[in-house]
Simulated scan of single mutants.
Amino acid sequence: MDCLFCKIVEGEIPADVLYQDEKVIVFRDINPQAPFHALVIPRQHIPTLNDIADEDCELVGYMLKIAGDVAEEHGFAEDGYRTVFNCNTHGGQTVYHIHLHLLGGKPMGWPPYQETLKTPV
């Protein structure tokens, strides 16, 4: 399989790993968008959110729990943080192995992008 994140899971590509267990790996994003930016990825290859099966729901919930634990460990859980899943091209997904972005360490506004929408949502 030619998946970047699978190669990280297998140890073929190095990563700044913050946490790992039998289900997930958490590592720092190489292009951080906040003072703290890590990715929570499952060891199991699931390409997009659209590919999550019923039996994967517990794993996705576990990813969110681990994100909260990492936020606590790194001291920004109480101040707050953002978690984001991107899905497919329009959602901004660039690696087709589901991953949860964990961003913290600064106040974050809403909407996240300040661009003008050209078409109604």
Rank of each mutant, 00 (worst) to 15 (best):
P111C: 05
L102M: 11
Q20T: 04
E78L: 02
L59W: 15
E72K: 13
E12C: 00
M63V: 14
V9E: 00
R43E: 05
E72C: 03
P32C: 07
D54T: 06
Y62C: 05
E12D: 06
V26P: 10
V121P: 01
E12L: 05
I41T: 06
M1E: 09
L18F: 04
L102V: 13
F85S: 09
N31T: 13
A77D: 15
A38S: 10
P42F: 14
N50F: 11
P107A: 11
F76A: 05
V84S: 01
D21C: 02
V24Q: 08
T89P: 07
Q93H: 05
G91Q: 07
T48V: 04
V70F: 02
A53F: 05
G109F: 02
Y19A: 06
T48E: 12
I46G: 09
K65F: 12
K118G: 15
F27N: 03
V70N: 02
L39W: 07
I52R: 00
C6H: 12
V26R: 00
D54F: 05
K106A: 14
L64G: 14
G80W: 04
F27G: 06
E78M: 00
E78I: 03
L117E: 13
L59A: 10
D2E: 15
T94N: 03
V121I: 08
C6P: 15
F36W: 01
H101W: 04
L18G: 04
N86S: 02
Y81E: 15
I66L: 07
V9F: 06
H101M: 07
K65H: 12
P47E: 15
G92H: 02
H99Y: 11
D2G: 12
I41H: 07
C3D: 10
G109A: 11
E55A: 10
I98H: 09
E115R: 03
L18V: 10
L49A: 12
A34T: 15
L18C: 00
H101A: 04
R28Y: 01
Y62F: 09
P32I: 08
Q93F: 02
P35H: 02
V24I: 14
T94Q: 06
L59G: 13
N88M: 12
